[in-house]
Simulated scan of single mutants.
Amino acid sequence: MSTEHATSPLQDPRVQAVLDRIQAERRRPAGGGPRGGTRDPYAFTDVGFSIHPAQGDLIYLLCRAVGATRVVEFATSLGVSTLYFATAVRDNGGGTVIGSEIVPEKAAAALGHLAEAGLADLVDLRIGDARETLRDLGGPVDFALIDGWPVDSGPSLARQVMENIAPQLRPGALVMNDNAEPDYLDYVRDPANGFRTLSLPLKGSTELSVRVGPSVGA
């Protein structure tokens, strides 16, 4: 293990090598990406919009702490967050990571990265609109990542997906949000929806929430 990764809770050199390569190949999207240009996800088939390593380390550590075996993420992109989730689930004794990705080329790349890391058998990657593919998760979930794509108007995708996922979270489940969409924050910060939440100084916009009671309509 290199000095660079000595303090990371993820100590699998095979997985870390894949993560390092993805990070090394990361490039800035033309036109500033979806927040500075087009909002069409198919315009970025070869560009990953992923969590940062510190967020991934936190995901791994929290999943180990709560013994997570069933987790869900929106969205998978090139599979960076999936690698952290799948490693934690494997190290917890096994389980399932339910991923979601609307762009087939990115889904294929993510599956390739997972296979390279030896984790593909732990992942159920659902291709399509997460508002539909994540509507039924097949049972209670221990941890969710909500990392949505920006939209031009109306409720954010993060808020819409969260409203579908929330009733499927077990009491004590954790949720991480990457982009701090205002309407998403309104949802998790309203005690009536069954969450307690905290803003973290990671990537400038990380919200960590725990489900402490049933959500409205559950």
Rank of each mutant, 00 (worst) to 15 (best):
S156E: 07
R135P: 12
D136W: 08
A43G: 01
A24Y: 06
Y42C: 03
S215R: 08
A88H: 02
E25N: 14
R189Y: 10
E132Q: 15
V216M: 15
A75E: 02
G118F: 04
S81D: 05
E73H: 07
P34N: 01
V216S: 15
P167W: 02
G112Q: 11
S215H: 09
R131Y: 06
G67Y: 10
R170E: 00
G36Y: 11
G148K: 03
L19S: 02
L145I: 06
Y187K: 06
F143E: 02
G213Y: 08
R196K: 15
A65Q: 10
K106L: 04
P182V: 10
C63Y: 03
P171R: 13
A6S: 15
A120V: 07
V89I: 05
P41D: 01
A158Q: 08
G172S: 06
S153R: 11
V141T: 10
L122W: 01
L185R: 01
A144T: 00
F85R: 04
G99A: 11
E207F: 08
G112I: 07
I22G: 01
A110E: 03
E4F: 12
L83W: 03
R39T: 07
A17F: 04
Q16T: 11
E73A: 05
G139I: 03
G37A: 14
I51V: 11
A173H: 00
A130G: 10
D129Y: 01
Q55N: 12
D186E: 12
S199N: 12
E101P: 04
L198A: 14
I102C: 00
F85C: 06
V72G: 01
S50R: 06
R170G: 07
G36E: 12
E207S: 09
G93Y: 03
T7M: 14
M176Q: 08
T76H: 03
R196N: 13
I59F: 10
G138I: 06
E101Y: 01
V188L: 08
P191M: 04
I102G: 05
A218L: 11
T69A: 05
R39V: 01
S215F: 06
G56Q: 02
P150D: 08
V66E: 01
V210E: 00
V212Y: 07
L157C: 10
I146W: 03
V141L: 06
L134I: 10
D183E: 12
L10V: 11
P34H: 00
L198D: 11
E116Y: 07
N193Q: 15
L200Q: 05
D190I: 11
S50M: 14
E4N: 14
P214R: 14
Q23H: 15
G154N: 08
V175P: 04
A30K: 10
T45V: 13
L78I: 12
S81I: 04
A180C: 12
D20L: 02
R196L: 14
N179Y: 04
A130P: 00
A17G: 07
D186S: 14
G94R: 10
P150G: 08
G154R: 06
D20E: 13
N177R: 09
G32R: 10
P214Y: 07
T206K: 03
D121C: 08
L157S: 09
V141C: 05
P201L: 04
H113Y: 13
H5N: 15
V161K: 05
I22N: 01
V15D: 05
I165T: 02
H52R: 11
V47L: 05
I98L: 10
T38V: 13
E116A: 13
L122P: 00
E132Y: 13
T3D: 15
A173N: 04
L111M: 15
A218R: 13
